[in-house]
Write a protein that binds this DNA or RNA. Structure first.
Length: 457
RNA sequence: GGCGCCUUGGCGGAGUGGCUACGCAGCGGCCUGCAAAGCCGUUUACACCGGUUCGACUCCGGUAGGCGCCUCCA
């Protein structure tokens, strides 16, 4: 179990990840609001935190990954109305789509995927505690968090409350004591088809409180890592932190870990965040269908999680090309018998150290390619076994499995015919057959051991 | 306007006070009947201007450009 360090947004420092008594590491990452299908940008935290969990398990920790689903939200009401279905039904449809899209990545499911709609009781209880302790107040059926009652407000996003723009949510200005205050509970409004009872009347939870409640329900307080996209630092995580600490007088999480945005890139130096509101999205489901899950995962691990990642024309093709090089390694040759050589073990260590050092997947990937290059120059015991192990930590284990190169009867017959032609030095005929195989989806490789069919990627 | 981040070779993308990142693409060579795969080599990379230093792409200051958040947002 090596020490793992992660950059903490709150302190601005790279901090040692501190596991609980039995190596427990609670990780809570904010998932999507389920009003539409998710895009590549939304997939990034899913991939990053899923892989972080894998790595921690590999190192002997006992990680628990929670990725929530926000299924109560204004946008869901709007989208449901547009689709002409009840909002609960629309949310369920989008949850199904999200599960299908992320399942296709082949990274497994998080340990828990709580929904706001299934956490109402803890949410109401948490709000009640905040009201009782004076950190929140009721106003015409709404409940607001009293930001001024929490002096540390602004610490996560490094903002001075006094200097905030204090943008107003339409209609709530009159109900708040202070423009900074934000809603914990919203009274039911005209046209909203979901509502729950509460001490303040029928209504629904605000956005931020659900995460405070779900995280505490599943991971307790002061758990190891709370994460999500960097666009959530403010106000979402700032507010979560304030609510929980105000109510419990204990930290919510030890480390706040934020991934950078995927940027839609038109030209070099001309990029912007991929977002539905900008209309520059590339849907995850589309990407997986067109390029395969390995291309998407490979694209995401090609950059450090904290940096913006440029999604330009050809990004997925490049990831595929990179993956292809890895597949080739497993397709050709085999490891000599014996324990892994020192060179192989050194690459393995460097790979794992890179992940332990603020989860540096591109550095790890570079070590993996180094291992492959070493082993191609001269066969090294353990190279393939270790490479396969490391690929698993990047979510790319399928690259080690090869993909069926057994040709059909027709293809094998053509290959044999080509071999006869070559034997007779009838190369025109041989090349003709090779072209025919190409049309059938096969590449031909003439190796020292004879001609072989290889499935075209 | 406020806060934070960034600017690396054709492209993506790590990293370091002095030593090859890595990958993709291109080019040359080896191998091959020709290819493919692989190997070898390759295009004097670190926005600009100052400063610190024996030495800076790496530290400090400034300039220019870009990104994120400040409103729903992964």
């Amino acid at each position: 179990m090596r020490d793992v360090r992660i950059r903490d947004t709150l302190s601005g420092e790279v901090k040692l990840l501190e596991p609980g008594p039995d190596g427990e590491v609670g990780i809570y990452a904010c998932g999507p609001t389920v009003y539409g299908p998710i895009h590549i940008g939304n997939a990034r935290p899913f991939v990053v935190f899923s892989l972080l969990r894998r790595f921690l398990a590999h190192e002997g920790y006992s990680p628990t990954l929670v990725i929530n689903l926000t299924d109560i939200n204004d946008k869901i009401y709007v989208a449901a109305a547009a689709a002409g279905v009840p909002s609960a039904e629309h949310a369920e449809r989008m949850i199904a789509a999200y599960r299908a899209d992320t399942d296709a990545l082949g990274l497994g499911r998080p340990d828990h995927e709580p929904k706001a709609t299934e956490t109402i009781a803890p949410i109401v209880a948490l709000i009640a505690d905040l009201v009782a302790s004076g950190h929140a107040y009721e106003s015409s059926g709404d409940v607001y968090f009293r930001v001024r009652s929490f002096p540390a407000y602004g610490q996560l996003s490094n903002r001075d409350p006094e200097a905030m723009d204090q943008g107003e949510e339409a209609g709530s200005a009159d109900l708040k004591e202070d423009p900074l205050d934000f809603a914990l509970w919203k009274a039911r409004k005209e046209g909203e088809d979901t509502a729950w009872p509460s001490p303040w009347g029928e209504g629904r939870p605000g956005w931020h409180i659900e995460c405070s409640a779900m995280a505490e329900e599943l991971l307790g307080l002061d758990f190891a890592v709370h994460g999500g996209g960097s666009d959530l630092v403010f106000p979402h995580h700032e507010n979560e932190l304030a609510q929980t600490e105000a109510a419990r007088e204990r930290p919510l999480a030890k480390i706040w870990m934020h991934n950078g945005m995927v940027q839609a890139q038109r030209d070099r130096g001309d990029a912007e965040k991929m977002a539905k509101s900008v209309g520059n999205v590339f849907l995850l489901g589309e990407a997986v269908r067109a390029h395969g899950p390995e291309a998407v995962v490979g694209f995401i691990v090609s950059g450090h999680y904290r940096q913006p990642l440029a999604f330009g024309a050809g990004a997925l093709e490049e990831a595929e090309a990179r993956n292809q090089r890895i597949r080739e390694f497993f397709r050709e040759g085999s490891d000599p018998p014996g324990d892994p050589t020192p060179a192989v073990l050194a690459r393995r260590e460097a790979f794992l150290d890179a992940l332990a050092d603020d989860f540096n997947t591109p550095r790890a990937l570079a070590e993996l390619f180094g291992l492959l290059a070493d082993a191609r120059r001269e066969p090294l015991a353990g190279a393939r076994a270790v490479a396969a192990e490391l690929l698993g930590l990047l979510g790319l284990e399928s690259l080690a499995e090869g993909r069926g190169d057994e040709g059909s009867e027709e293809a094998e017959a053509l290959l044999a015919e080509r071999e006869r032609a070559r034997g007779e030095r009838d190369f025109a005929r041989a090349d003709e057959i090779r072209d025919r195989l190409g049309e059938l989806g096969w590449d031909v490789r003439d190796t020292a051991e004879g001609a072989r069919l290889v499935r075209r990627s």
